[in-house]
């Protein structure tokens, strides 16, 4: 796990940013159920609580800065648009962050009409999926066989959807609108979102393990990562269960909050496993 500890800032970034972004996918699913047609008080609560995903992504970006040797030059990372997978990730991430901040500030100041609200949250949901995918694609480096696979973006998408669904639930429940929006179709869509997220995250993690396991020279790295990998998958499954229970049965804030904590920890551990399984074709 030595390499994982060297990449702690990136593990924090990819965890917080993907989960934070995914919250907007969950919120977008609640729009048809009347998310933004709630009472003005509830709407205000939703807007205040939208600080959670904005902060998650923001803190993620700040964490990523600690990875850089010269953070003051960070904007130079935009020089490689279209060429460098890392630049592509940063561009999509910044686009997401700008729209998310604009939406949040405008919503807080009460300047958003219903139509614009719906449109912006839907755009943010789409951007979130792209952002998570591009975080995974940033590791598509041909000399690193364990990272250069579809499993890397798959797990990032999974973390985004599963983590986002739990933190989305947290906002809905804390704003006391979950029971209003939780119609039959919302429940089905939400459970499907959580299932899809968990499946992508678990398949991505197992795929990484499979590829790494096929590299004989990496035996000790794979063995060291195995307990962490098992823990991450167990946590992902548990958080999915907590999300489903909260949507299908009577939701409790404590259960949802526990789910958020579990998903944060299991995604973070999953990311540590990813960095621990950095295996190059070279020396």
């Amino acid at each position: 796990m030595e390499h994982a500890y060297a990449e702690l800032p990136l593990a924090a970034f990819s965890t917080l940013a993907s989960i934070g972004a995914g919250v907007f996918v969950a919120l977008a699913l609640a729009i048809p159920g009347g998310l933004f047609s709630s009472s003005p008080e509830k709407l205000k609560k939703i807007d205040r609580l939208t600080a959670i995903p904005v902060l998650l992504v923001g803190v993620g970006f700040i964490a990523a800065m600690f990875h850089l040797a010269t953070p003051l030059n960070a904007l130079n990372a935009l020089n490689g648009v279209g060429r460098s997978p890392l630049t592509n990730e940063v561009v999509v991430g910044l686009a997401f962050m700008v729209v998310a901040l604009a939406y949040w500030v405008a919503a807080l100041t009460g300047r958003l009409g219903l139509g614009v609200r719906k449109a912006l949250v839907s755009v943010l949901a789409v951007l979130a999926v792209f952002f998570a995918g591009f975080i995974g694609l940033a590791y598509a480096i041909p000399t690193i066989p364990t990272w250069n696979t579809p499993f890397a973006p798959a797990s990032m998408l999974g973390y985004c959807l599963l983590g986002g669904s739990l933190f989305g639930l947290l906002i809905l429940q804390a704003a006391d609108v979950l029971k209003d929006v939780a119609s039959g179709s919302f429940k089905v869509l939400f459970v499907a979102l959580g299932l899809l997220g968990a499946a992508a995250a678990v398949i991505g993690t197992l795929g990484l393990f499979m590829v790494a396991g096929g590299i004989e020279a990496a035996g000790h790295q794979v063995a060291a990562a195995l307990p962490w990998l098992v823990g991450s998958i167990a946590g992902l499954v548990l958080s999915l269960a907590l999300a489903v229970i909260s949507v299908v049965r009577v939701p409790r804030l404590g259960v949802v909050a526990l789910g958020c904590l579990v998903v944060l920890c299991s995604v973070f551990v999953g990311r540590l496993v990813f960095y621990a399984l950095y295996i190059t074709v070279g020396v």
């Binding site: 010269t70 953070p71 070279g282």
Partner: peptide
């Protein structure tokens, strides 16, 4: 121009 992100170090198979 370099920001010290280390992608070059990760990617180079010759370290």
């Amino acid at each position: 121009v370099c920001i010290g992100c280390g992608y070059c170090a990760l990617s180079c198979p010759y370290r």
